[in-house]
Simulated scan of single mutants.
Amino acid sequence: MSNRAQEARKALGARLRGFRKDAGFRSGRAFAAITGWQESKVSRIENGKQNASEDDIRAWCRHTNTDDQIDDLIATVRHIEELWLEWRRQLHAGAEPRQRKAMPVYEKTRVFRIWHPTLVWGTIQTAEYAAETFRQVIDFYEIPDDKDAAVAKRMERQQYLYKGDRIFNVLLAEQALYTNVGGPEVMRGQLDRLLAVMSLRRLSLGLVPKSAPMHIWPGNSFSMFDGKLVLVETYSAEFSVTQPREIALYGRAFDLLKRSAVYGAPARALIARAVEHLDD
């Protein structure tokens, strides 16, 4: 769970603890007895170890005479849930809706900062490369197969590379040039695509060589949208970072990763070497 989600859960728990004490329940055991819950559940909720459900909130407020707080507390619970979205929940209807959901964010963002240590970033992928990544997603999460629709929506996202005054700062680790997605022909097309997008005026593509001195560990991939939002992906979930202090940490991480990157001719040389590897 992200730090922001954990902090929000702890704050909610402290608020509920205050309601319990104000209602005259001096201990969690006494409150558990009146609600029919396990004492451990009361403790976990109050200490931010477990998120309260909407039904839990209603019961808590009913027993503490704070019904006027229900709507606000339920809104808080829903916000906490949104900070950490399991991929299964996001992708239950297929991969295309998640791609569609990204479009308004791209529309509003002026400066992008992208870090991918192992794969090519989606917005500069070829259709063939994207199709293979979606095939793996569909198989792994066992979701409806809407690969073609998802690819089409991802390709539509590339329009923002050419529209408006957006600036794209993209960092890939050298490993992304070698991670075999779809086989040699797909990879050859993808590497050619990287060479092509390097000429775009508003896109800065840096590559971090595998032997480059690192100033921070590579970590997970992340995408920064202006200074307002960071999306971080793991195998189980995607979480949103919106707290300014945390966003600043990702900005600092990006700057440290950038210090290890090469651009221009040295970056093209790394891509050419990866193409030669395919030929070998």
Rank of each mutant, 00 (worst) to 15 (best):
A59Y: 10
N47H: 14
Y106I: 00
L231A: 00
D280R: 13
G36H: 05
E81H: 09
F31N: 06
P209W: 07
E174K: 07
L177W: 08
R154P: 11
T133P: 03
A173V: 00
V232N: 01
Q99F: 09
L231N: 02
R110I: 07
D56P: 03
T123R: 08
E39G: 09
D56I: 05
R89E: 12
R100M: 06
V151R: 07
G122L: 02
H215S: 10
G251K: 05
R44K: 15
L257H: 13
E174C: 07
D71K: 15
D145S: 13
H92F: 14
F222I: 06
A59C: 06
D68R: 13
P218G: 03
L191P: 04
Q125S: 13
S240V: 08
Q6A: 12
A8P: 04
T109M: 03
A173P: 05
F112K: 01
C61H: 05
A23D: 07
E233P: 02
F168Q: 01
K163C: 09
S2L: 10
D139R: 15
A52N: 04
L85T: 01
S236F: 01
E238S: 11
T133L: 14
Y178S: 11
V137R: 08
E39L: 05
I70W: 00
P117W: 12
Y160G: 05
T118C: 09
A30Y: 07
G48M: 03
L194P: 00
D226A: 09
E142R: 15
E238Q: 15
T118F: 07
M198H: 05
R44N: 13
E233K: 04
A30R: 15
R113L: 08
M155I: 11
R62I: 10
P144V: 00
N180W: 07
N47W: 07
Y162A: 13
G227A: 09
E81R: 15
A14P: 02
M103P: 05
R26L: 11
L177G: 11
G219K: 15
R15S: 09
N169I: 00
P104E: 03
M214T: 06
H116Q: 15
D139I: 07
T234R: 06
E128C: 02
D145F: 08
G28R: 06
R113P: 03
M103V: 13
E174D: 11
Y106T: 00
M1D: 10
I74F: 01
R78N: 03
L231Q: 05
S27V: 05
V197W: 11
R157S: 10
Q175P: 08
P104R: 03
L278D: 10
V151W: 06
L249E: 15
A196N: 07
Y162L: 14
H215Y: 14
Q136P: 04
A93V: 09
D71F: 04
T35F: 02
R202Y: 06
L171I: 03
R188D: 12
P144A: 00
D56C: 06
L91N: 04
K108E: 10
Y178H: 15
L249H: 15
I57H: 05
L83I: 00
R78L: 00
A102Y: 12
A131M: 06
R154A: 14
R202T: 14
T35I: 03
E7A: 11
H79Q: 13
Q243A: 14
L257Q: 08
I114M: 09
R252Q: 14
R98P: 02
Y178E: 10
A75F: 03
P97E: 00
W87C: 09
N65Y: 14
D56S: 08
V197C: 10
K258G: 04
E238N: 09
A152W: 10
D279E: 14
